[in-house]
Design a protein around this nucleic acid. Structure first.
Lengths: 245, 245
DNA sequence: AGGGATTCTGTACCACGTACGCTGTATCGC
DNA sequence: GCGATACAGCGTACGTGGTACAGAATCCCT
């Protein structure tokens, strides 16, 4: 009744296959196709993922794939979910420890499969894997006294942070590819060339202070931790405020 | 010398046109093309932006555009920068007031031009507009005693937050389109249908507690402010820590 | 004045997603 | 069992959209 909005492939991701009574058995399943597509994306990037190349990888004709996915877009949606690993185990850790780990793991698998970033998967999570990630974050926040809505909100914010960090790190890595040294230094050089101090006073100052050179750790863990701690400190403050009431 | 990495169109965005000695004068400039493309995107969405449609809009042949942009991708990059408005004026406000405004304005213009989200513009900022946004945020943080690197970091994190919020809000708005009631309620229904309590204990509990129904304000300003305050509280804590030293 | 670089354009090509219809096959009703 | 039926797999063909290429028109420079 409400399945209308979500892509049909989501239903299939949950195993809601309407097993038909008539006809030959399917020689494949969605998972095998999605795995093949992910293998190609890992090897050749997202551009390498074509209906024809996926079909070749699973040993079928191109058009046969359309028995399993409604369109290429649906395939990409299924890929986005299946490409994520399982979330870290909670193991009774305190919320802050766990969420630090969780967020870092989130960023890391995005960096390991950069094509996930290009996918622009900005939809609310609907696949089994994505929801398991959400579930674990909520579980970690269970003892904090925060409301359900707040917990969801926090999980969302942290995923957003992980995604953003991964995007930036990847963009800089790509920019730096070929040159052993760095992407950021070069970025700063370009800024220096192009900026006029009148229109961009604060930026110019930052560039001259070599802020970007120093911030080479933008890609780095130190920097990741920095921003993450901003968020976690904020969450901590919220928890404390709630407890005082 | 270091221009190698950035797309050539970036140079043109900064007016670094190498005015040639010979030949007919160009009858157009990059800005006019980009404006036309933005107009189309606003009207017909990103799919409406085709080299042919943009050319028609400016009254030229399709291939003529390639005198101004190296490829469609370059055009999209230029659009991403030009489509942003100017950042809010600082007006001597305190950093927290200003950055609240700044982040909200950031989210708002993304919501006003949702195709910017589809663009997946996850590159470090390089256009004049994007850098002006960065510059203003840095200026707002000038009196805080934070280092340049930290300020850049904060600005980055806040843009990330604005982007994420805009993405979610837009995704839910789209999902809700057609049905007057809501996207989130429906989302919760689907989750309820599909979830098994064993694999997703915390999520199931949240759904049963109607957390999503209550969190209908996900799209809402209350929710936006909630997450933003988490960040700002974290920043405040950092400033205080620095001051104590 | 004329040479050469540069703009604009039409044509053509190629890549890719996918609609359509055919063929074979496995299950169901009798 | 036996035909009817529905569905899997697939080959062909089309449409769309980016862009390479080459010719013609244009205008600056010497």
């Amino acid at each position: 009744m409400s399945e209308r909005r979500l892509p049909p492939v989501v239903a299939r991701m949950w195993g809601r296959e309407t097993s038909p009574r008539h006809g030959p058995r399917p020689s494949l399943d969605l998972a095998r196709i999605v795995d093949a597509a992910i293998r190609i994306a890992d090897r050749d990037g997202l551009d390498g993922v074509r209906m024809s190349s996926v079909a070749r990888e699973v040993g079928m004709a191109t058009m046969s794939l359309y028995r399993y996915v409604g369109s290429k877009d649906e395939l990409l949606i299924a890929m986005a979910d299946a490409a994520a690993p399982e979330p870290p185990a909670l193991d009774g850790r305190a919320w802050r420890d766990y969420l630090t780990d969780w967020t870092r793991a989130n960023r890391d698998f995005l960096l390991g499969r950069p094509w996930l970033l290009a996918l622009g998967q900005h939809t609310p999570p609907a696949g089994p894997r994505a929801l398991r990630w959400l579930d674990r974050a909520l579980a970690a926040l269970a003892g904090t006294g925060l409301g359900h809505g707040e917990r969801i909100n926090i999980a969302t914010t942290l995923t957003g942070y992980a995604t953003r960090q991964a995007s930036l790190a990847h963009a800089l890595n790509v920019a730096a590819a070929g040159e052993p040294i760095a992407g950021l230094t070069e970025y700063a050089d370009i800024l220096g060339e192009v900026l006029d101090p009148d229109g961009y006073p604060a930026l110019t100052e930052a560039v001259h202070a070599n802020a970007f050179g120093v911030a080479e750790e933008w890609i780095d863990d130190a920097d990741f931790t920095f921003g993450l701690d901003l968020l976690l400190d904020g969450i901590q403050a919220l928890i404390d405020r709630r407890r005082e009431h």
